[in-house]
Design a protein around this nucleic acid. Structure first.
Length: 967
RNA sequence: GCUCGAGUGGCGGAAUAGGUAUACGCGCAACACUUAAAAUGUUGUCUGCGAAAGCGGAUGCGGGUUCGACUCCCGCCUCGAGCACCA
C-alpha cells in the first residue's frame, strides 16, 4: 500500500498543536494602539453554569470568530474579547445545596467553560478576560450605581413589588414571564417592601426614539417598543362633588369624554384616603382593597375572569365637558401603576368598561357612531340634506336559520325590512315595519344590535341627499302566521328568505351592511372603531380623531404614558454586588465615598435567603456595622445586593481597558473602540427586553455624565437561532438530548464542528442538532485536505494513477475553474458580511467539488485556504505551513476577486412559449433580439411549438429570456 | 385579541429590483474498489402518465396582476415569537 505523501488529516494532532503555537506567538492579542480602522466584535458573555457548554453555545461564538478573522484579514484592528457573567441565582443555589462558597464554584465553572471554549480554536484575546464577580470589576459596577444615586436616578421605594416566594427575593418587571418568576416558575406575589429602584422611566423617551437608528433585528426592536409601551393621550380632571379633591384620569380616547358614565379607581389608589370620609360604604370598600392585595398578578389579570368592583357610595365627580354628576367605583381592572391609576369609563366605546357596566347595571351612553357613504348612490353635491331616523330588522326563522329579506321590484335592491321610526320606540317601529312590509305577525326575542350607524346617500325619488341614523334590530320568528299586505307594499317588493351566508356586502344594498355582518348573530359590545360624534354638544358630527385633539385641548392636556416601570434593582440575596450605601441614624441614606470602593462581598457561613426582606448579609454584624461617612456616627451597610443584570449592563466597556484602576475605562481608548458603538454584537433573543434595555439605559446615563462618547452601545445586533436537541426539544439534561462539544471535537475535530455550526442552517433560525448531518462538513474538510494532491508541479503531489486528474488541464477547464473561483470569492465575501454562513459553505463545496476533479495551481489552492481560514483555522494553518509558509495564515490578506473574470462571454438564454419554458441554449454575451430569434427558430425544440401557429407577441429581455405568445 | 416572523423533496435547507424551483449537504438505491465490511469513488434520487423520447402537475390553501409568480397584491389556514384588563 502506498503511503499518502499529503499525509493524513489527523485533527487530534493538528488542532492542539496550532493552538499552542498561536498562544505562544500571541496571534490573537489585540493591539492597544488606538490607531487604524477598528472593529469591535462582541459575544454576549455567558453565565458559567455547572453543567458546561452544549453544542448550541458555540454557534454564536463561531460566527463572531469567523467575522472577526475576516475583518482582521481586511486590515482592521479587531477587538474580540470574552468574559464571565458569574453573579446570579444558580451559583448561589448551588452554594446553598452543596455548602460551597460561590467564589470557589465560580472558579471551577469558569475554568471548565474556558477549556471548552478554547478547544474550539476561537480567537479571543484572553488577556482582556473579565469576570463580573471580580472586586476589581464590580468596583466599577458600584461606581456607576453611585453616579446614578447622585443624580437622583437611584432611589429607595416602599411600593409593593414582585416577590418570588421561592427565590425569596424581589424581582423587576422584566424578570417575570406570565406573572411567574423567570428563574423558577413560581407565581410571584405583590409585597410591599423597601427596595432600591432605578429611574429608567426618565430615559423611556430616548430609549424608544433611538431604537429607530439601530441596525438590529426588527423583532427585537419591536419587542423593545412594546416593552416601553409609549402611548399618547390626555389627562383630564374630574372634580369631586363636595370636596377639594379631584380625580385625574389618563385616556387615549378623549373623544369619548361626553360618554363617560362613571369613573374607576384602582384598589391601590392613594386618592381613596382623601375620599374616605365621603364614602358611605367604607367597610365594603376596605374589604375590596384588602382582597385585591392578596391576589396575585395572574389572578387579577386572568383573561377570561369576570370583572369585580365596588361602588364608592356617596362619591360623585363632575364630567368636565358636560357638567354631569357621575358615580365613582373601584375595580382591580384599573392598574395602579399605569397612567394616573384612575380611568374615566365609557362603556359604549371600551370593551372593559362595557363588561363592567353590564355586570353592575351602569348606564351606557353612546357618543360615537360609524359612518358609511353609499357607494352605489352617493350623495349628490348641492342637493338638500334631509336627516332621518331609521330602523332595519333582521328576522330569523329558528327552524332553518334563514333571514327575512325584500327584493325590490323597481330597483335591483335587496334589503331587510326597514323604515323610519318617527319617534316611536325602536322595537315597536321594527315590528310595525315587518308587519307592513312582509305580513309576519308574531315575532319574539326583540333585540337592538348595537348603536346607530350614520349613512349618507342620494334619494333619487325625492331628489334629496339623505342622512340616515339607523338602528339594527333582530327578532326570531315565532310562527308563520301572516297578515295580508297592502297593495302598495306588495307592488314595491317581494319577500324572500335567505341563508345568512349569502347576505354579503355585494348582495345586499344597505350601505351599512359590513357593520351589520359584524353584529348579526353575535354578542354586540362596545363600538371601539372610528366614526363621528353624537350626544357631544358642539362636537356633534365631528370626526372622532379630530375631536380627540379638540376635546383634549378644551378640557385637559396632552399627556404621554409608558408601560415601562422603574427598574427594581435590589435583591435580598447573597451572590451579587453589594449596593454601596449606608444607613445612618442621623443622616439617613448616605453614599459610600468612591475611595472606599469596592465594597467587597464578605464571606458568610450561610447563603440561605432569609425571606424577611433582608439578604443573608444582614447577619454579618461585623460587616454591617460601620461608620457614617458623613457624620462619623453609627451606621449600617445596605444589605441588599444588585440583580444579575447589573454587571452585564456595562461589561463591553471594560474589555477595552480591563485593568484600569483609575476609571471604568480610559476615555481615549473608549473613544477609539466605541466609535459608533460596538460594531457587531451577537447573542440570543432571550435578552431582547432585559439586558439590551438595561445596557442601553446605563450607556445613555454614562453618556450624560460624560463617561462614554456615544449615545448607543450596540450598533449592529445579530441573534443566533437556538440549537435544539435532535428531538427538536430544547437541549437540556431533563430530556437527555444534550450534545457536548468536547465529544464532537474529539470525534471529528473543532474545524468540522465549526464548519457544521455555520452550515447547519440560517444563522438566525432555530435548528435541531444532527450528528448525522455533520459528517458532510467533515467530508468537505477531507476533500479540501486532499486537494494538496491535486496541485500541479507540487512535490507533495501523489503520482499514483488513483488520484491522477480525471480531467487534464486545458484551456477550457482552466477558464471554468477560474470563473468559479472568482465567483466563489465574491459569494463568500458577501455571505460573511451578511451572516449567510450556510450559503458561504455551500459555495465552498461547489468550488471544491470542481477542484478535486482537475489539477489546480498552488496559488489557487492558497486562495481557497485563506478564505476557509476563518471557518477552519487549524486545518488551513497546517496546510499553509506545509506549503512552505512561515507566517500564520490568519495574518494574511483576504483574497480579492476580479469582476472581469466572473463574467463569461457566453450566457444561457431561455425561450418561453406561452409562458412555458421550452428551450435554453448558449448565446454570446450581448446578443441582440434578432440574433437570439434566429438561433431559436432554427431549433427543433422551439419550432415544434410554433408550427401552424402565429406569433402574436414577442418579449425579449437581453441575456435572459425570449418570450413568445402564439394564438 | 394586537404586533412581528415563517410555511419549498424523506430530512437541514437554496433560489425574491419577477425570468429554467428543488443549489449545497444528509439520507436512500445501484455500481466500482474489497475475501468481507467500513472508508472512498461513480451514477441516480420532487411527483403523475409513459418502454423511451416526451408531456403534465407541485413552493400551506383560494383568488388576482403578468408573456412569466416561491418572489408582488387580496382573502384564509397552520406554526413560532413578543405583548396582553396599559384606559
Amino acid at each position: 500500500m502506498k503511503k499518502q505523501i499529503g499525509g493524513e488529516y489527523n485533527h487530534l494532532k493538528i488542532e492542539p498543536k496550532w493552538r499552542k503555537v498561536w498562544e505562544k506567538k500571541k496571534v490573537n492579542l489585540t493591539k492597544d494602539t488606538a490607531k487604524g480602522k477598528k472593529f469591535y466584535v462582541l459575544d454576549m458573555f455567558p453565565y458559567p453554569s455547572g453543567t458546561g457548554l452544549h453544542v448550541g453555545h458555540p454557534r454564536g461564538y463561531v460566527a463572531t470568530d469567523v467575522y472577526s478573522r475576516y475583518k482582521r484579514m481586511h486590515g482592521f484592528n479587531v477587538l474580540h474579547p470574552m468574559g464571565w457573567d458569574s453573579f446570579g441565582l444558580p451559583a448561589e443555589n448551588f452554594a446553598i445545596k452543596n455548602k460551597i462558597n460561590p467564589v470557589i464554584s465560580d472558579k471551577i465553572n469558569v475554568k471548565r467553560y474556558k477549556e471548552q471554549i478554547s478547544i474550539l480554536g476561537l480567537n479571543y484575546d484572553w488577556s482582556r478576560e473579565i469576570n463580573t464577580t471580580d472586586p476589581n470589576y464590580y468596583k466599577w459596577t458600584q461606581w456607576i450605581f453611585l453616579q446614578l444615586f447622585k443624580k437622583g436616578l437611584a432611589y429607595e421605594s416602599f411600593e409593593p413589588i414582585n416577590w418570588c416566594p421561592s427565590c425569596k427575593t424581589g424581582l423587576a418587571n422584566e424578570d417575570l414571564e406570565d406573572g411567574k418568576c423567570e428563574r423558577c416558575g413560581t407565581v410571584v406575589e405583590k409585597k410591599p417592601m423597601r427596595q432600591w429602584v432605578l429611574k429608567i422611566t426618565d430615559y423611556a423617551d430616548r430609549l424608544l426614539k433611538d431604537i429607530d437608528d439601530l441596525n438590529w433585528p426588527e423583532s427585537v426592536k419591536e419587542s423593545q417598543r412594546n416593552w416601553i409601551g409609549r402611548s399618547e393621550g390626555a389627562e383630564l380632571e374630574f372634580k369631586v362633588v363636595d370636596s377639594k379633591s379631584s380625580i385625574k384620569v389618563f385616556t387615549t380616547r378623549a373623544d369619548t369624554l361626553f360618554g363617560v358614565t362613571y369613573v374607576v379607581l384602582a384598589p391601590e389608589s392613594k386618592l381613596v384616603g382623601e375620599l374616605k370620609t365621603q364614602i358611605k360604604n367604607w367597610p365594603e370598600v376596605e374589604k375590596y382593597m384588602a382582597e385585591a392585595k392578596t391576589k396575585t398578578e395572574i389572578e387579577r389579570t386572568a383573561v377570561n375572569k369576570s370583572k369585580t368592583g365596588v361602588a364608592l357610595k356617596g362619591v360623585f365627580v363632575i364630567n368636565p365637558a358636560t357638567g354631569e354628576k357621575v358615580p365613582v367605583w373601584m375595580s382591580d381592572y384599573v392598574l395602579a401603576d399605569y397612567g394616573t391609576g384612575a380611568v374615566m369609563a365609557v362603556p359604549a366605546h371600551d370593551e372593559r368598561d362595557f363588561a363592567f357596566a353590564t355586570k353592575y347595571n351602569l348606564p351606557i351612553k353612546e357618543v360615537i357612531i360609524p359612518v358609511r357613504i353609499d357607494k352605489r348612490n352617493p350623495p349628490v353635491p348641492g342637493k338638500e340634506k334631509v336627516t332621518r331616523q331609521n330602523v332595519q330588522v333582521v328576522v330569523r326563522n329558528p327552524k332553518d336559520n334563514k333571514i327575512l329579506c325584500l327584493q325590490w321590484k323597481k330597483h335591483d335592491w335587496r334589503t331587510f325590512p326597514m323604515g323610519g321610526t318617527d319617534g316611536e320606540d325602536i322595537l315597536t317601529a321594527a315590528k310595525r315595519e315587518v308587519l307592513e312590509e312582509t305580513g309576519y305577525k308574531n315575532l319574539a326575542n326583540g333585540k337592538i344590535l348595537g348603536g346607530q350607524v350614520r349613512a349618507e346617500y342620494f334619494a333619487a325619488h325625492k331628489d334629496v341627499n339623505r342622512v340616515s341614523y339607523t338602528t339594527l334590530v333582530s327578532f326570531d320568528l315565532k310562527d308563520e302566521e301572516r297578515a295580508p299586505i297592502s297593495k302598495e307594499e306588495a307592488d314595491q317588493a317581494d319577500v324572500f328568505w335567505a341563508d345568512l351566508k349569502t347576505l354579503t356586502v355585494d348582495f345586499m344594498t344597505h350601505a351599512e351592511m359590513d357593520i351589520w355582518l359584524e353584529r348579526i348573530g353575535k354578542e354586540v359590545t362596545a363600538y371601539t372603531s372610528t366614526g363621528v360624534l353624537i350626544n357631544s354638544g358642539k362636537f356633534d358630527g365631528t370626526d372622532n380623531e379630530k375631536a380627540e385633539k379638540e376635546i383634549t385641548k378644551a378640557f385637559g392636556k396632552v399627556k404621554v404614558s409608558y408601560k415601562l416601570k422603574d427598574w427594581v434593582f435590589s435583591r435580598q440575596r447573597y451572590w451579587g454586588e453589594p449596593i454601596p450605601v449606608v444607613h445612618c441614624d442621623k443622616c439617613g441614606v448616605v453614599a459610600v465615598p468612591e475611595k472606599q470602593l469596592p465594597i467587597k462581598l464578605p464571606k458568610v457561613k450561610f447563603y440561605e435567603p432569609t425571606g424577611t426582606g433582608e439578604s443573608p448579609l444582614a447577619a454579618i454584624t461585623k460587616w454591617v456595622n460601620t461608620k457614617c461617612p458623613k457624620c462619623g456616627g453609627k451606621a449600617k451597610r445596605e444589605t441588599n445586593t444588585m440583580p444579575q443584570w447589573a454587571g452585564s449592563s456595562w461589561y463591553y466597556l471594560r474589555y477595552i481597558n480591563p485593568k484600569n484602576k483609575k476609571a471604568l475605562v480610559d476615555k481615549k481608548k473608549e473613544k477609539y473602540w466605541m466609535k459608533n458603538g460596538v460594531d457587531l454584537y451577537v447573542g440570543g433573543t432571550e435578552h431582547a427586553t432585559r439586558h439590551l434595555i438595561y445596557a442601553r439605559f446605563w450607556h445613555k446615563f454614562l453618556f450624560d455624565i460624560g463617561a462614554v462618547s456615544e449615545k448607543e452601545p450596540f450598533k449592529q445586533l445579530k441573534n443566533q437561532g437556538m440549537v435544539l436537541g435532535s428531538d427538536s426539544r430544547k437541549m437540556s439534561k431533563r430530556w437527555g438530548n444534550v450534545v457536548n462539544p468536547d465529544e464532537v471535537v474529539k470525534n471529528v475535530g473543532a474545524d468540522a464542528l465549526r464548519v457544521y455550526e455555520m452550515f447547519m442552517g440560517p444563522f438566525e433560525q432555530e435548528i435541531a442538532w444532527s450528528t448525522d448531518n455533520m459528517v458532510g462538513s467533515r467530508r468537505f474538510l477531507d476533500k479540501v485536505w486532499k486537494l494538496q494532491e491535486r496541485i500541479s508541479g507540487n512535490p507533495l503531489r501523489l503520482t499514483s494513477e488513483l488520484i491522477a486528474p480525471r480531467v487534464s488541464r486545458n484551456q477550457e477547464v482552466d477558464h471554468k475553474f477560474e470563473t468559479l473561483l472568482h465567483k466563489t470569492i465574491k459569494k463568500v465575501t458577501e455571505d460573511i458580511v451578511n451572516f449567510n454562513f450556510n450559503t458561504a459553505i455551500s459555495a465552498f463545496m461547489i468550488l471544491v467539488n470542481l477542484a478535486e476533479k482537475i489539477e489546480i495551481t498552488k496559488a489557487d489552492y492558497e486562495i481557497i485556504l485563506k478564505m476557509l481560514a476563518p471557518f477552519a483555522p487549524h486545518m488551513t494553518e497546517e496546510i499553509w505551513a506545509k506549503l512552505g509558509h512561515k507566517k500564520s495564515i490568519h495574518l494574511e490578506k483576504w483574497p480579492d476577486y476580479n469582476e472581469k473574470k466572473i463574467i463569461s462571454e457566453k450566457i444561457m438564454v431561455m425561450v418561453q412559449i406561452n409562458g412555458k419554458p421550452r428551450a435554453s441554449f448558449e448565446m454570446p454575451v450581448g446578443s441582440t433580439q434578432a440574433e437570439v430569434e434566429k438561433a431559436a427558430f432554427a431549433r427543433d425544440d422551439v419550432s415544434k411549438w410554433l408550427t401552424g401557429k402565429e406569433i402574436i407577441k414577442k418579449l425579449f429581455i437581453k441575456e435572459r429570456i425570449l418570450s413568445l405568445i402564439t394564438n
